[in-house]
């Protein structure tokens, strides 16, 4: 049976290649060192990935906070607010390399697990805790005798760093292989757990642990890219909520912080009640929203 490749998958692959276009780096086992790295990419993309042309915003935030000079990063927070307001969690669905990795893993035909609603709801708060504690508080307030802190999230939790940076760099360097010890074993174990979980549960890292998704989720209600349910057309059949792999209560709160704007629900609606909104404009019809709907 022939499977159609979705437009979203194509955009995910193109963006992953664009943000990691230093292909020579993979062959040479070296990272890109040009000035482009001053700029943050929108998704979780380790700057120690040999292909990376830009900087990971979460890594950059910790780099500034853990340094001696600043206790707040206007630059990175400004960039994150900009991405959050313009694209919001659309970034998770279309522009995040680690999101793409999880999407591909979920395509592996193994039985899929549904996390009980209560546990799922509780676990979703973890990513905010990760953002507050590992990304902001510990790098800002815990430092050594020289006043320099550590990127706690990158060091102890981030699976993207291990997958995109650690594995390719270690594969090409005997020195790094010899230096790898307990911390690498821990990070590899975290990566393996997340990779395995991603086969059974849709995007477990995005749902429960990603601090970047947590930050962008804060802008879901105001971001330029949003979703809309036409309540006059909606028959409350629930087909959209059955299709939504992120577990969004679409009829109740379509623009929830958990919605990654993947658009799966649009195709599932038998009455065409769901559409995308760009600013105040409905994408499907190209007409200005008249204010009667939630767009």
């Amino acid at each position: 049976m022939k499977r159609k490749i979705s437009k979203r998958l194509i955009i995910q692959i193109i963006s992953a290649l664009l943000f990691n276009a230093n292909f020579r780096g993979f062959a040479e086992g070296r990272i890109y060192t040009g000035k482009l790295k001053t700029l943050c990419v929108p998704g979780l993309n380790c700057y120690s990935c040999p292909g990376a042309l830009g900087s990971c915003p979460i890594g950059s935030l910790q780099a500034v906070l853990s340094g001696r000079k600043h206790n707040f990063s206007f630059y990175v927070i400004g960039v994150l607010i900009f991405f959050g307001v313009v694209l919001g969690r659309l970034i998770c669905a279309f522009l995040c390399l680690f999101g793409l990795v999880q999407d591909l893993l979920y395509k592996i035909p193994v039985p899929k697990l549904k996390i009980p609603k209560k546990a799922d709801k509780l676990l979703r708060w973890l990513k905010y805790l990760v953002l507050l504690v590992l990304v902001i508080a510990l790098p800002t307030f815990v430092s050594n005798q020289f006043g320099i802190g550590e990127p706690w999230f990158c060091k102890w939790l981030c699976p993207a760093g291990t997958l995109e940076g650690g594995l390719p760099l270690l594969a090409g360097s005997e020195n790094l292989q010899q230096a790898a010890g307990g911390l690498f074993a821990w990070k590899l174990a975290v990566l393996i757990v997340i990779v395995l979980a991603s086969m059974f549960v849709y995007r477990p890292f995005c749902k429960y642990l990603c601090p970047l998704g947590a930050f962008y989720g804060l802008f879901s209600r105001v971001s330029i890219f949003r979703m809309k349910v036409d309540k006059e057309k909606c028959t409350l059949c629930g087909a959209c909520e059955k299709r939504c792999k992120m577990g969004v209560e679409i009829r109740k709160n379509i623009n929830s912080a958990e919605c990654i704007r993947c658009g799966e629900c649009i195709g599932s609606c038998p009455t065409g009640a769901i559409s995308r909104c760009i600013g105040g404009f409905e994408k499907n019809e190209g007409e200005k929203n008249d204010g009667r709907t939630s767009c």
């Binding site: 990272i31 890594g59 760093g161 940076g165 650690g166 230096a179 690498f184 990070k187």
Partner: peptide, 9 residues
């Protein structure tokens, strides 16, 4: 290379 990110130090 961010040694913390790749799990070295």
């Amino acid at each position: 290379i961010c040694l913390e990110c790749i799990g070295i130090g």
